[in-house]
Design a protein around this nucleic acid. Sequence first.
DNA 1: CTTTCATGTTAGTTCCTACTAACATAAGTT
DNA 2: AACTTATGTTAGTAGGAACTAACATGAAAG
Lengths: 191, 191
Amino acid sequence: MCVLNTEDKILNASIVLFSQKGFNAVTTKEIAKKAGVSEMTLFRHFESKQNLFEKAFDKFVFSPKFRALYDGLEWDLERDLNKICSSYQDTLYRNQKIILMHFKNDELNPDFDATLFNFPNEFRKLLGYYFEEMKNRGAIRENPETLAMSFLATNFGLFITSLVMNKLTYETDIQVCIATCVKIFAKGITC
Amino acid sequence: MCVLNTEDKILNASIVLFSQKGFNAVTTKEIAKKAGVSEMTLFRHFESKQNLFEKAFDKFVFSPKFRALYDGLEWDLERDLNKICSSYQDTLYRNQKIILMHFKNDELNPDFDATLFNFPNEFRKLLGYYFEEMKNRGAIRENPETLAMSFLATNFGLFITSLVMNKLTYETDIQVCIATCVKIFAKGITC
DNA sequence: CTTTCATGTTAGTTCCTACTAACATAAGTT
DNA sequence: AACTTATGTTAGTAGGAACTAACATGAAAG
């Protein structure tokens, strides 16, 4: 199969453990074991646990292509919101380990916060612009910023719920909830 | 003013620190200092850090009166959803420290999870029952369980967003978002 | 064959943290 | 005055975790 080099093995192992337990609760010994290397090797590749964390963070942050999103708008409420929602959910999903890690750590470094909060902010701008324009076109009436924030928060709630639901045993399918929410939202704001 | 007894001082200090940093990241020395007592006193009142955590958890879990909620239903979509939403947001708010703590700890004890997940589950039942009845009355068409889950997830998203927003500087008022969301939701599911 | 390089192993240092023991103090109770 | 009770102080133990030093090994490269 694909044989990973040592650094990648360590980075992969660390991000999984960090997201499961948070930075402080994970030991370097644990990471080394999961990566299948000795603890000494870990310290030879990364000067410290902190440094390993930073490298892992950088490696696993993901941001979508907003240009394509802007260009792909069709000015049909349900279709556009579906597209934006899909992209946002996808981005949240890809960043899930980092997001979980962020929740679990107090404050490692304000720069991480800034980096991590970057993409929700971009989505907020996109939605703000979109609702503004739709209001000008007379398709909706509500305040664009409020709508943008509400739509983002709703999506984030659905995302977190789907994460937590893996542990629980609700019969409800979260994908259906997401689709339903977008439909309700589109219908609920239409004039 | 009101002078707290020693145990309450320690419990209050611990819940604040636990919610800020998570169980592992907080030291008993830190808790004692914040409580204004010596570390020794802490151990005299609580046999261990773990024990202190459990007492603090028990003290600060809050559950609303569901009986009153069921009895107060008026079978008017927007009014009822507003009432349920208010109660849910209020419950989330009162449990915010415990919820944050829960996010930050890996797994201290599955019993805590069960206790903490109890009230969202009760709200889910309430909403399921409500939407089921509203469907029977012909007021809505969507699947009741999906709606219940979606409404809960939306609310949770708004709650988390309001917590995070304290750190950020968005101009949007989260209370307005909550009210808007309920209105959109009510309008979006009406036949 | 020898050198180099990445890795493993083992032992150890330093620091922090939960938790304890022993004694001191100060206020209230009997 | 003697006793009780709650608290503080100081010193210390035991264990864990980050990180290091020194040496061993084994495979690839010259």
